[in-house]
Design a protein around this nucleic acid. Structure first.
Lengths: 153, 153
DNA sequence: TATTGTTATACTCTATAACTATA
DNA sequence: TATAGTTATAGAGTATAACAATA
């Protein structure tokens, strides 16, 4: 029992969760920003870099180096859009899809390790409460500021 | 209902909580790092800069500019320790204590706004679950990585 | 010689603005 | 003229190492 409210605990445990996840995917030579990008491309393939930048809440210029690295690594591809040759359509390669499955394995292990103190019922309650907060606060599912890495506006 | 686990939700909601709190204290012309420092000095006055750096999980060199700014502002004071003149003993001024009470007011308002979607009972359950996780994960009460602001190691 | 606090240097990261090509 | 993507420049922020004062 201490004097800290749930808002402080949320920030503290949330930052810890992000750090531990970053360590895990760091073993796959990935950064949180790269995982955020890969996740968006996997969920909705064919989007332009600017569309993805808007969803990540980051600047379009940041995507250039981000996509460069993942493309050089062979997990992501730029395809020119024939209808508008200014746009790229980003898509995963076969290696990219395999990488995503390895990320998913890490995410499951991370989830289990982080909530090791909770029972299955408690895990469900926690997710329910957090979902309520996220909905009321207008947070977009699947994206969080850690992916952007930017400063506070 | 989405496919994201409670670990992801924790990171997402936690980052959102930290951002909103940073916005609030930003209206008091304070950064999260400054608040973390002030909180430690208020809780245990008289500590050296290196002792505080260790608790914040940051480098001692960062504290110089941090303390400089707050001292110039008149909320914090460096007192030489007579027993060991290498050490400073950091203490709040009267203005500093007044500032802390204003921070506390913001913290309460922040808490209420962030958990507006929950009932009082649910708020208690959330705090209980988060405390369980924080204890099991070995997190120190009252300090979180947002105060350090550093990169992942 | 070891330690506290300070300063100086280099490095990383980000944001802003110009530039190329396509429309 | 407007937009997608790229590149270049400058700025903020951090870490590392060297330095002065004290033990």
């Amino acid at each position: 029992m201490n004097g800290f409210g749930s808002a402080f605990l949320l920030a503290q445990v949330g930052a810890h969760a992000a750090q531990r996840f970053a360590e895990r995917i760091g073993e796959l030579d990935l950064t949180p920003a790269q995982v955020g990008l890969l996740r968006l491309v996997a969920t909705r393939p064919g989007q332009s870099q600017q569309a993805i930048a808007a969803q990540l809440g980051t600047q379009p210029t940041r995507l250039v180096a981000l996509v460069d690295g993942l493309e050089k690594r062979g997990v992501l591809e730029r395809h020119r859009n024939p209808e508008d040759r200014r746009l790229y359509a980003l898509q995963l390669t076969d290696d990219g899809r395999e990488l995503m499955s390895r990320i998913a394995i890490e995410a499951v292990a991370h989830e289990r390790a982080l909530t090791a103190a909770l029972s299955n019922d408690e895990r469900g309650v926690l997710r329910e409460l957090l979902t309520k907060i996220a909905d009321e606060q207008g947070l977009q599912p699947g994206v969080h500021p850690g992916y952007a890495g930017g400063r506070l506006s």
